[in-house]
Design a protein around this nucleic acid. Structure first.
Length: 270
DNA sequence: ATGGTAGTCGCACTA
């Protein structure tokens, strides 16, 4: 069986943590890594280090200071595209087709976090997040031949949709990432394209599952007040093709860690 | 109810 090992990780500065990127790639034998929050302009992207780690194919979409996404691959990437959302020049999306896979395409997203105040009337960051999600719902409508498209969508979607995706459902109902209005949009997005929630294929919805733990708690593993903000989705054409999924929370304990853990998964392409 | 930490860029902003 031929398979590809993928990972997605909000790295919170690719330059600061380039050695951690290398450690993940090499120790976990990753083929294709999607990064979010690279916080790095394209001309400053640490390509040489990545080449040294054995990764020749890099698709990047970054800007100074904020946001930024990238796909780092051992396999050639084709037809790299970026999409604009909300008519902003934020670097929040990049996609590519994996060579030699008969058209398997991966989309890498960094959805706006949305600020603190969960009222779009007075918080334009939350309004932006909701509009971004609306545009994600309409984004795919132009695609043809949906049923045969082999698509993977990963990234920091900044939404924890299920009750067991947060440490306390009740306490987070008014906390952005878990408010009903954004969870509804997330569910609308999922159903409009029949996306498969791969992580929940491996860990039942009755069990807690997190990918992010705030920097603001001293002992993140003991308090364990996490949220599942990072996601792995596939189109129905890939149903049953994901053969493993792990939240690699060890990386949250590395020295000067990202506040997100990588999610690693295998896709059978035979 | 509040404030806690981290990163980039420059002394504010975003998460």
């Amino acid at each position: 069986m031929a398979s590809i090992k993928f990972a997605t990780w909000n790295i919170n500065s690719v330059r600061l943590r380039i050695e951690q990127v290398g450690k993940l790639l090499q120790e976990q034998n990753i083929d294709v890594l999607c990064l979010q929050e690279t916080k790095c302009p394209n001309d400053a992207f640490p390509e040489k280090a990545l080449h040294k780690f054995g990764y020749e194919h890099i698709a990047k979409h970054g800007q100074k200071g904020y946001h930024g996404v990238a796909i780092i691959s051992r396999i050639p990437l084709e037809d790299v595209k970026m999409r604009v959302f909300c008519e902003k020049d934020d670097t929040r999306h990049i996609s590519a087709t994996i060579a030699g896979t008969d058209g398997l395409r991966i989309h890498n997203f960094y959805v706006p976090a949305g600020g603190d105040e969960p009222n779009p009337e007075i918080n334009e960051k939350f309004a932006h997040k909701l509009q971004f999600l609306e545009e994600m719902i309409s984004w795919y409508k132009g695609h043809k031949d949906k049923k045969n498209n082999k698509l993977i969508l990963v990234g920091d979607l900044n939404i924890a949709p299920l009750e067991e995706d947060v440490w306390s459902h009740k306490k987070l109902l008014k906390v952005i990432s878990h408010t009903p209005v954004e969870v509804d949009l997330f569910e609308k997005f999922m159903s409009s394209h029949s996306w498969i929630d791969v992580m929940r294929e491996f860990v039942p919805s009755t069990e807690k599952l997190y990918t992010w733990w705030s920097y603001r708690s001293k002992d993140w593993r003991v308090s364990n007040k996490g949220r599942r903000l990072d996601h792995v989705l596939t189109s129905p054409a890939l149903a049953g093709k994901t053969t493993s999924m792990t939240v690699y929370s060890d990386a949250r304990s590395w020295e000067r860690p990202s506040d997100h853990a990588p999610v690693i998964f295998d896709v059978d392409i035979s």
